[in-house]
Design a binder for these strands. Sequence first.
DNA 1: CCATGTGAAGGTATTCACAGCC
DNA 2: GGCTGTGAATACCTTCACATGG
Lengths: 207, 207
Amino acid sequence: MRYHKIPDETVRRLPIYLRGLMLSATRGREHISSQSLADFVGVNSWQIRKDFSYFGDFGTPGVGYNIEGLAKQIKKILRLDVVRKAALVGVGDLGSALLAYPGFRTYGLDIVAAFDVDAEKIGSAVSGVEIENITRIATLQERGISLGIVAVPHTAGQFIADKLVEAGVRGILNFAPCKIDAPRRVKIITLDIAMELARLPYYMPAG
Amino acid sequence: MRYHKIPDETVRRLPIYLRGLMLSATRGREHISSQSLADFVGVNSWQIRKDFSYFGDFGTPGVGYNIEGLAKQIKKILRLDVVRKAALVGVGDLGSALLAYPGFRTYGLDIVAAFDVDAEKIGSAVSGVEIENITRIATLQERGISLGIVAVPHTAGQFIADKLVEAGVRGILNFAPCKIDAPRRVKIITLDIAMELARLPYYMPAG
DNA sequence: CCATGTGAAGGTATTCACAGCC
DNA sequence: GGCTGTGAATACCTTCACATGG
């Protein structure tokens, strides 16, 4: 079933599969069954097959999936096959951790610029990235940066997001604990760490 | 419809509502309509009413919801009405940022212990929390700590999780990019930052 | 014989529309 | 009149069972 809208939930799981495949690739085997991948990433095998079925025939019946080929396919679908430049705004504790985080590179995402309001930080470098005045966010477009990461206090979230949108970014990963409004053409993903932790006690047995 | 299983998706949204209500509380008004709250947090008004309907009659027709009362109710449902002690494992860049993050306190979550393997870090303090040797994770139970936060490399994720489970924690917030297996009685929430960023390009128009 | 790919069934969550209440 | 609470309708996602293909 090749021509079909891909469910959002499937898109959410693709990076999980990709991570599992990239790890498997270092294990020496060339093929992997949906069942093995399932055990490895913690998703049911039929769910995996269904997810893959939205894109086309990835696997070989009786054999499984070609690990390298499948990983490449998923990268292409997620558009991770080109290196994409990202800008970070807000170089506080979290921002600094994000700059130091090597995980983004794995997915072709490269933080090449960082901005802050703090005059003391501006000019210095964190993890090899120079911190610039936020007024320079306006230069993003000409520098080919299409992705913004917001790690500022919630009071500044919307303001910074507006600046990023003006500067032409088409996607924002928002760590600020607030709602962000933006034109439909800009995709926003909000990731509020405290809120994830906040729903943990609900699932914990008494105590 | 008071006696009903609460959908997971509703539980996921409750902290969003809570955050909005706590912010609204500082605005001086006593009541808020589902519509106003909807505008504020970015969820549809009917979704909000439906979510609340799983718990009981929170609102007053023609008036709206009592902000303070509703916030208290949600806190109770999420079991955030008691202060809960948490332990952090892995005081790297991300771990340090989490220790410095004030957002957890808002939800009654208090990071009172931190562990690392690095001998140089052990004994020093980060954000007022002393860093201990990970062998001391075993003392969590007697210290009344029921919640673990894992911020270690993916190679150590499962190992640390096992230690935490042994030490009696009943919930784990996992930042390590790996699957964590644990007994059913322990709730695991995994939050892989790179993976969230990885699905952003998919939704970005060409470029 | 083994593992994929997929219609069909089943379950869950969202959206709608409106009755009921203040 | 305004706003809540909720059955019903719809859309979406998951699970199953098996036909199909190497």
